[in-house]
Computed example of a mutant assay.
Amino acid sequence: MTNNILFINTGVIWGGVEGWNYKTAKALDKRGYNIFILAKSETPFSKKCKKANLQVNTIKEINSSSFFNLFRVNKLKKYLIKNKIDVMFFCQSSHFKFASLAGYLANVDRIIYRRALAKPINNHFYNRLALENFVTDFMAISKTTLNKSLEKLPENVVSKEKIKLIYNGVNSKKFVNPKIKNNIRKQYNIDQDDILIANIGRLGRQKAQQDLINAINELNKNYKKFKVLFVGTGDKAQEYKNLVKELNLEDKIIFTGFREDVPSILKQVDFVAHSAIYEGCPWIVLETMAAAKPIVAVDIPSVRELVIDGETGILSERNTTKFANTLLKMIQNKEKEKMGEYAQKIYKKNYTFNKMIDNIEKRILY
Score class of each variant (00 low, 15 high):
Ile112Ser: 04
Lys225His: 13
Ser172Trp: 00
Ile184Glu: 07
Lys162Trp: 09
Leu117Cys: 06
Lys224Met: 06
Gln206Ala: 15
Phe125Cys: 02
Pro178Ile: 05
Tyr126Glu: 02
Val228Glu: 05
Val158Lys: 14
Glu161Met: 02
Glu151Ile: 12
Glu239Thr: 14
Leu146Ser: 08
Asn123Gln: 10
Tyr126Asn: 11
Gly232Tyr: 09
Glu161Cys: 00
Asn127Gln: 07
Lys119Ile: 11
Lys225Ile: 04
Gln192Thr: 08
Tyr126Asp: 12
Ser149Cys: 09
Ala198Tyr: 09
Ala237Asn: 08
Leu117His: 12
Ala215His: 10
Tyr167Ser: 12
Lys143Gln: 08
Gly234Lys: 01
Val176Met: 10
Leu153Val: 01
Ile180Asn: 04
Ile197Val: 09
Phe134Asp: 13
Glu218Tyr: 05
Arg115Gly: 00
Arg205His: 13
Tyr126Ser: 07
Ile141Cys: 08
Asn183Gln: 08
Asn147Leu: 14
Ala198Met: 15
Lys227Thr: 02
Lys181Ala: 11
Thr145Leu: 06
Val231Glu: 03
Arg115Thr: 01
Asn199Ser: 14
Lys186Pro: 01
Phe226Ile: 09
Asn147Asp: 14
Lys241Asp: 00
Lys174Gln: 12
Thr145Ala: 13
Leu153Lys: 03
Gly169Glu: 01
Ala198Cys: 08
Ser159Thr: 15
Ser149Asn: 15
Val170Leu: 11
Lys119Tyr: 13
Lys164Thr: 00
Phe226Met: 08
Leu131Ala: 15
Ile197Asp: 03
Asp211Met: 07
Ile190Lys: 11
Ile190Phe: 05
Asp211Lys: 05
Asn177Lys: 08
Gln206Val: 14
Gly234Val: 01
Ile184Trp: 07
Met139His: 12
Ala118Phe: 03
Gln187Asp: 10
Leu229Lys: 05
Lys160Gln: 13
Ile180Gly: 00
Leu117Ser: 07
Lys162Cys: 01
Phe226Ala: 02
Arg114Gln: 08
Asp194Thr: 10
Lys152Asn: 15
Asn214His: 13
Leu153Asn: 04
Ile163Gln: 10
Lys207Thr: 03
Gln206Glu: 15
Lys186Arg: 03
Val170Arg: 11
Leu131Ile: 04
Ile180Trp: 04
Leu229Phe: 14
Lys181Gln: 14
Asn122Val: 04
Asn122Ser: 14
Leu150Met: 11
Ala208Thr: 08
Leu150Lys: 09
Ile166Asn: 04
Asn168Arg: 07
Ala116Tyr: 10
Asn217Glu: 12
Gln238Gly: 09
Asn133Arg: 12
Ile200Arg: 03
Leu212Lys: 10
Asp235Cys: 01
Glu151Gln: 14
Gly201Cys: 06
